[in-house]
């Protein structure tokens, strides 16, 4: 379980996150919504151990973020908003590249299966020749090489076609259901968020998102 207790974060005098508390269970997909600058990406970076909160405590499966950061990182998969892959290498070479740097050993067959599960079939193609959707899938696949318990995704489907979106969404649901992964997902697409996520966290003061989400039967928490 991911347990977040009373975390706060400021940039200078500007308070981004204030006394935020929530938890995520295994097998659960949590959506993060809010206007630009509300603090979604900051929260995700804190949960990814890339930023330290000013106050509060976070635990992942009883591992403290403050005291056991190295162990925590082994359990985290982070999918950045930017596509962080090597454009000049093929899909296979990208997977091999990051697998060599990973904590977990994976065979070529396992890596290929991971891509196939996401309908990423162009194994031998250079990444620069792939569509945006395919690149996004590869971006996600690389983050899953070490079988993370907590998967953090920052707008992973931005700018891609509907088919690829649906495929990524279906894969994430399967990942949560079959492997009990905890998934935290940022998106501005309300349809995607409501169809994919079990619960939704609404960050910021703008009532726009909350009003839209009220029409759904999802559990909504709001943080200002």
């Amino acid at each position: 379980m991911l347990s977040v207790k009373s975390i706060s974060k400021s940039y200078g005098k500007k308070k981004i996150l204030d006394n935020m508390t929530f938890s995520v269970q295994h097998g659960e997909i949590l959506g993060l919504v809010g206007e630009n600058g509300a603090g979604k990406s900051t929260l995700l970076k804190i949960l990814a151990t890339l930023l330290k909160p000013d106050a509060g405590q976070i635990e992942l499966d009883q591992l403290s973020y403050q005291k056991q950061r190295a162990k925590v990182r082994k359990k985290i998969g982070f999918v950045p908003q930017d596509i962080v892959v090597w454009e000049n290498l093929t899909v296979e070479e990208n997977m091999l590249f990051f697998a060599k740097l990973s904590w977990k050993k994976k065979s070529v067959d396992e890596l290929r299966q991971l891509c196939l599960d996401m309908n990423l079939e162009k194994w031998k193609e250079p990444v620069k020749t792939l569509s945006g959707g395919m690149k996004r899938k590869l971006n996600l696949a690389i983050s899953l090489i070490h079988d993370p318990t907590l998967l953090l995704l920052d707008e992973p489907t931005v700018g891609i076609d509907l088919k690829s979106r649906k495929e990524i969404g279906a894969y994430l649901k399967k990942l949560a259901a079959d492997q009990g992964a905890m998934i935290i997902y940022i998106s501005h697409d309300m349809d995607e968020i409501t169809s994919l996520c079990d619960r939704i966290l609404c960050i910021g003061n703008d009532p726009f998102y909350k009003n839209i989400l009220k029409k759904t039967n999802k559990e909504i928490a709001t943080f200002h």
Binding site: A48, T49, R73, F78, V84, L101, S102, W103, S143
Partner: peptide, 18 residues
Amino acid sequence: KARMHIRLAFSRYSFKNY
């Protein structure tokens, strides 16, 4: 430029070490 430090935060090597 490839923002490798983001990936390497979740690998066996730190970015500097890499």
